[in-house]
Structures are given as C-alpha cells and as structure tokens.
C-alpha cells in the first residue's frame, strides 16, 4: 500500500494545457506515485473552480472510499466525487491523506478530504466544473512517474 500525506506536497504538480478543448479546461497532473497523482489531479480540478486554493480552510472532513478495476476510472470517479460535493453541499474539498491499494486486479482508494463551504468573500472563483470528460482521459506511468491527462467540461 502506498500513501501520501498532504504536508509533503511538492511545487504545483499540474499544469493547464492551452490547446485542448477550446471551451473547456484540460490539465496534466503528475506524481511520483499514485496517491501523489490523485492528490495533484484533485487540486488541479479544484483550482479550476477556485483560484486561491490556500484560502480553503480545512475544517470539515469527509472520507471517500472507491474501488475500480481500472486505475483510469478510479481517478475519474474520484474527481466526480469532488464535483458532487461542490454542487450538493457547496463543499470545496482537498485531499489530506490518500491511500491506494491494488489487490486481486482491483484498485482501492481511501482518501481523507477536508475543506469548507464556498464563501464568495474569501474564495476567488474561476469557472464551475460541470463534469469530468473521458475525452483523451489517460493515466500512465512514464519513466517511473505517474501522469494523468484530464479534460474538464466547463
């Protein structure tokens, strides 16, 4: 099992891509392992909606547990989960502790996410994310590092 603690965070491990999906927003996230990759992709998604991620106070905690036989679909489901909380509870959430286990051909994700309800006076909004699309969606290992490409529908 690999796990990732938020405090060991590196420099911004994601970048937005200019020429994919004219009306939408694409990003590439990287990580030395899967938990790092998932954390980076979650922040990349949240950062599309909120410019100043650091302004999100981590006062409310939720547990997210998901499993899938495909690592791609596991990341897809995880990002959808964050979008769900944003709409249903107005919660802006960031991963605090991420664990991913691979056994019996199935990936198991256990994440502690934390955040708070959107406060328009403190959180600088950018664009609402409608959905994670599967257009060009990829998760792959290259030269020992994990990389994901995601196009978000805006």
């Amino acid at each position: 099992m690999s796990s990732f603690q938020f405090k060991s965070f590196r420099a911004k491990p994601y970048r937005y891509l200019e020429d994919i999906g004219t009306a939408d927003i694409a990003f590439e996230a990287t990580g030395r392992d899967l938990p790092e990759l998932f954390t980076a992709a979650a922040d990349a998604t949240m950062n599309v909606m909120i410019d100043n991620l650091d302004a999100i106070e981590l006062c409310e905690t939720r547990q997210i547990e998901l499993s899938n036989d495909s690592i791609e679909m596991l990341l897809f489901d995880f990002l959808q989960e964050l979008i769900y909380f944003k709409d249903a509870r107005r919660l802006l959430l960031r991963p605090r502790k991420t664990q991913i286990e691979h056994k019996d051909k199935e990936y198991f994700l256990k994440v502690t996410v934390a955040g708070e309800q959107l406060d328009a006076t403190r959180h600088h909004q950018r664009a609402d994310v409608k959905a994670v699309t599967l257009h060009g969606f990829s998760v792959e290992k290259q030269d020992g590092n994990w990389k994901a490409r995601v196009l978000l529908d805006i």
Binding site: A23, Y84, D87, A88, Q125, A127, D128, K130, I154
Partner: peptide, 15 residues
C-alpha cells in the same frame, strides 16, 4: 437529484 435540487434559478458559470 442531490446535485440539482438546490440549484433551481441559478445561472452557473463559464459562458
């Protein structure tokens, strides 16, 4: 339903 029942009468964002 959970994602929408509070959002009637809202504009959204983007374009």
């Amino acid at each position: 339903i959970d994602r929408g029942y509070n959002q009637v009468g809202t504009l959204g964002s983007g374009n």
